[in-house]
């Protein structure tokens, strides 16, 4: 419930405006984004690496003219890095300078207590607060897309924190009081599904499973990103990439790699994807030597 009304008029509007930023959404993506806006719920986007999860959040921000605030998750991420923390170095300096000042006028115990209370109040004020992405996003008055990227990399405890923040969009800082969002950010969480996120978190979110796109859409994406690439070439690239994905590889090629491949073959001036072209540029799409070896043998490259 963005308090300022809705960002999109209908599903077609989502699709159109994402397209203007260079993001090609299919029906499911556009519908789900539209619903996240209408229902005012966080959107959890799950899928393999490089299918455009992060890109979706970025394009969405661009499409609605919002600022993107990103919380990158990793193992060991804690509240201090996700929400806020006190700037202890600065606080220490303040304590030291304060105790220097009161030390001279010493003697009176009551005065000492009072001034400590004063210092304590001072050092737990706005000035010493380091705001991290979650708090920052909640406090903003302008349109905001909050991207919580790679949520599955964070420890389970962080989910508890997210759950709290995403249910009522407010944060209580004991020393300062409760901060409540005046304008709810559009929240996108992404996950590579290296582990299951908790049911509770999922219940709070709308869910979008992003997988590799259809051949037609992938071709479109490649052509949008590498406009000079001849359509025929884009088509063969996509077909080969799909064949590669069907093999059991350590790391299946993602959309990003298809795009890189398009750029490479264009730069090298190939005009068909024959065995030689594929063999000499395969390193762009397959990063592991063993994957390359496997692809070469399964595609029988260089056999004829």
């Amino acid at each position: 419930m963005s308090l300022q009304g809705y960002a999109f008029a209908d599903v077609a509007d989502v699709r159109e405006r994402l397209r203007e930023t260079g993001y090609l959404a299919d029906e499911a993506i556009a519908t789900t984004v539209f619903l996240a806006d209408r229902l005012g719920k966080p959107l959890l986007v799950e899928g393999p690496a490089g299918v455009g999860k992060t890109e979706l959040a970025k394009s969405l921000a661009a499409a609605v003219g919002a600022e993107l605030i990103r919380l990158q998750c990793y193992e060991g991420l804690d509240e201090a890095r996700a929400l806020y923390e006190w700037n202890y170095k600065k606080q220490l300096l303040r304590i030291q300078s304060a105790s220097g000042a009161t030390g001279e006028a010493a003697g009176d115990a009551a005065a000492g207590t009072a001034s400590w209370q004063q210092t304590h109040d001072d050092i737990f004020s706005e000035e010493f607060l380091l705001s991290r992405p979650l708090l920052t996003a909640i406090r903003r008055d302008d349109p905001t897309v909050l991207l919580i990227d790679e949520t599955d990399k964070a420890d389970v405890e962080v989910e508890g924190l997210l759950l709290e923040v995403l249910s009522d969009f407010q944060v209580t800082i004991p020393e300062l009081g409760t901060v409540k969002a005046t304008r709810r950010p559009f929240v996108i969480l992404t996950s590579n599904a290296t582990r299951e996120l908790s049911e509770a978190l999922k219940r709070r979110c709308l869910y979008l499973n992003l997988d590799y796109p259809s051949a037609a859409r992938e071709k479109e994406i490649v052509l949008a990103r590498v406009p000079e690439l001849p359509e025929k070439m884009a088509e063969s690239l996509v077909r080969i990439v799909r064949a590669l994905r069907a093999m059991e590889l350590k790391k299946a090629p993602s959309i990003a790699e298809t795009i890189d491949w398009g750029q490479t073959v264009l730069a090298l001036g190939f005009d068909t994807m024959d065995d030689a072209a594929v063999t000499s540029t395969l390193g762009v799409v397959l990063k592991h030597a063993s994957d390359q070896a496997r692809a070469i043998s399964q595609l029988k490259l260089g056999a004829n």
């Binding site: 063969s236 069907a246 024959d274 594929v278 399964q298 029988k300 056999a303 004829n304």
Partner: peptide
């Protein structure tokens, strides 16, 4: 026999 065939089959 080559790449094209394999991909067409797929």
């Amino acid at each position: 026999g080559g790449l094209e065939e394999r991909i067409a089959r797929q």
